[in-house]
Nucleic acid binder design. Structure first.
Lengths: 203, 203
DNA sequence: GTGCAGACTTGCACGCCGTCCAAGTTCCCA
DNA sequence: TGGGAACTTGGACGGCGTGCAAGTCTGCAC
């Protein structure tokens, strides 16, 4: 790993940890990008070299972890049903990212107090666009042929199950309760691929 | 209907139609709120009195239509399974809002040319937060008791089915093809409420 | 080592969004 | 007819995200 790469990773982590610290202290909207950059000893411009926006700093994964997750996805057997793979990946993801999840939850609980709108509006999920993009790329690479829709649907459903579990997680429940919710949602959201649309031609 | 209410409705429609016209001419990002306000003969401040933001002008429904939709939702029999009601509502919604849907699709197709990011990032759906809020309120009012999660899940799943149909709708397919996609997605996304989680304790 | 090419950082300026507020105008109603 | 409520307006502000040109640092080849 070259010096350049090490520096880059260090900068990424400096920015992210500074940002999360400030967010926890003051809430998401009350911290500006300038302050994050200053706290990370970096210019505002550099911040945008590393993150696509202020929200990305909450959702993007550490580059090393991200590679690991891509490997985990790639390691799934090719003949495994997509939904089973998605379920396993998401549950594993949540189990291993316990701390990250709890941090996000604390942020989410604190931020509405400062400004209801801007956070709820972007309807905070857990995984972020980056992880979803990786998931989609992985799924596309193992999708046989013309049924892109079924694949897209399953990924979106899995994401929705995850979001629902997260959104309905009450403040007084533990992380393990949340995992239980997640499993329930994933189980109930399993799509019904096989059965034909009963009398699809009416109306 | 008082003069005040009529004026208000007229202003709403003036702003929305001016905005949609400009969006179609130049693309979403290339039009500023100032220009919309000017085209509607209204101040920038007034624009924000009517719409929560620039995107809302694409998604929010005409107040009169909105009332109609709330009535349609309220008219569903109370003992109908939630999923059946959601399916019927969404299909009806899409069938009746053919023009709106086609307009949105044209906007969506044109905008990436100008700036890939800002539209795709907010991952354009069709229904918008307002309609979803109405749906949630309606569903909450007919949800028996403690199982708020199952209700939230079903609404989110239905929304996801709709979004998937919309996202995967290719440029060369007709609106009726889209409706067919929608029905397929809704059918496949039907949640599996009954069955118990088969051996939920292993990881 | 030296020097060069490319990668990365920095400061600065810009346009725009969304919020706030204080002052003005219009409508409803008693 | 008057007073109060609803609505509009302009102006100012902070903040986000982008673009660019100039500077600095790293890897590499000689």
């Amino acid at each position: 790993m070259s010096l350049r790469e090490r520096k880059k990773l260090a900068a990424w982590r400096a920015i992210q940890s500074a940002a999360l610290r400030l967010f926890e202290e003051r809430g998401f909207e009350a911290v500006s990008v300038e302050e994050i950059a200053a706290a990370a000893d970096v210019s505002r411009s550099t911040f945008f070299n590393y993150f696509a926006g202020k929200e990305a700093v909450v959702f993007d994964q550490d580059p090393e972890e991200r590679d690991q997750w891509r490997a985990i996805m790639a390691a799934r057997p090719a003949d495994e049903p997509l939904w089973d793979a998605l379920t396993a990946i998401l549950i594993g993801f949540n189990e291993r990212l316990r701390d990250r999840t709890l941090t996000q939850r604390r942020l989410r609980a604190r931020s509405p107090a400062l400004a209801q709108s801007s956070l709820n509006q972007s309807s905070w999920a857990l995984v972020g666009e980056q992880f979803l993009a990786d998931l989609r790329a992985w799924a596309a690479s193992r999708t046989p042929e013309g049924d892109a829709m079924a694949t897209a649907l399953q990924i979106n459903l899995a994401d929705t199950a995850q979001n629902t579990a997260y959104q309905t997680w009450p403040a007084d429940e533990s992380f393990d309760d949340y995992l239980q919710r997640l499993k329930t949602c994933l189980h109930q959201a399993r799509p019904d691929i096989a059965s034909p649309p009963t009398s699809a031609t009416d109306s």
